[in-house]
Simulated scan of single mutants.
Amino acid sequence: MKLEHSRDYKLLARLNRGVHELHVQLYPEYFKPYNYEKMIELFQTYMEDENNYFLVLFDAETAKGFIFYEIVTKSNTPFNKEYKSLYVHQISIEETARSSGYGKALMIELENIAYTLKVDCIELDYWVDNHVARNFYEKLGFHKKREFVRKDLDT
C-alpha cells in the first residue's frame, strides 16, 4: 500500500464516482447524476486553491481511493478563538475495495499529517442518512461537536 498526494484531477474525478453515486442514491433531490467530464472540470477548479490537498491510496499500483482535505485557519475574533484544522471535504474508496482498511489507512495518514502540521483538529461532515460514514468515523474516534440542520421551503 502506498499513499501519495496527487494533483491528477482526472484520476480524482474517476475515484470520486463511488461517493458521488452514494450521495445521489441517498439524496437524489440534492445531487446530480455523476458526470465524469463535469467532475474533471470541478477537480481542476479545486486544484486552484493552494489549501486543498488530495491524498491517494494505491495498492499494487492501482488507485483504490482518496481523501480531499483543506487546511483551514479560523481567526481569533470576539466571537471565537483561533484554531487551525484539516477539514475533510470528501473521502472515497472504490466500491470493490471497500471494507479493506483503505479508508482507515487514509484517515490514519491524515492524522499523521495533522500532527506534523500542528493543527488543532480534523473536522468533517457527512449526510445524516449515511450510516456507514457515521459508523466509520465513530470507530476512528470522531464525535459530534455541532449539528447542521435545514428547513426546505416550498418556493
Rank of each mutant, 00 (worst) to 15 (best):
L110N: 09
M47Y: 01
K84V: 12
D8T: 02
L42I: 06
H23G: 03
F43Q: 02
I122A: 09
K118G: 01
L140M: 14
K84E: 13
F66T: 02
P78E: 04
L117Q: 14
F148Y: 15
V19W: 06
S85F: 08
K81V: 08
L26Q: 04
I71P: 04
Y102A: 05
F54S: 08
Y87S: 06
G103S: 08
I40Q: 05
M47Q: 12
P78R: 07
E82A: 08
G18N: 09
D49E: 11
N16F: 01
I91A: 06
A133Q: 11
F58I: 06
V132G: 01
T73K: 15
L110F: 08
L42R: 10
Q25T: 07
F54H: 09
I91E: 00
T77A: 12
F68Q: 02
E61L: 10
L42M: 12
K139R: 15
K104C: 03
N52F: 13
H143S: 14
E123A: 00
L86N: 03
Y30V: 07
Y46P: 04
I122Q: 02
Y34V: 00
E48S: 07
M39W: 03
E94I: 14
M39C: 04
A13D: 06
L42F: 09
L3Q: 08
K151G: 00
K2D: 06
F142E: 06
T62W: 09
V72R: 13
I67S: 00
F31M: 10
D59L: 08
V132N: 05
L26W: 01
L3H: 10
K64I: 06
E41S: 04
K74A: 04
L57H: 05
M39H: 04
E61Y: 04
L86Q: 06
P33R: 08
T73S: 13
D154S: 07
V132C: 03
T77D: 14
E29I: 05
K139T: 02
F43M: 00
E37D: 12
A114D: 14
R150H: 02
E147Y: 10
G101N: 07
I67E: 09
I93S: 07
E48R: 14
A114H: 10
P78V: 09
Y46F: 15
V128R: 04
D125W: 03
R14H: 11
K38Y: 00
Y137C: 01
V56H: 03
Y87L: 12
Y87R: 12
E70D: 09
K81N: 12
L124N: 01
K81H: 09
K38E: 13
A60C: 11
M107N: 07
Y27S: 05
T155Q: 13
E111R: 15
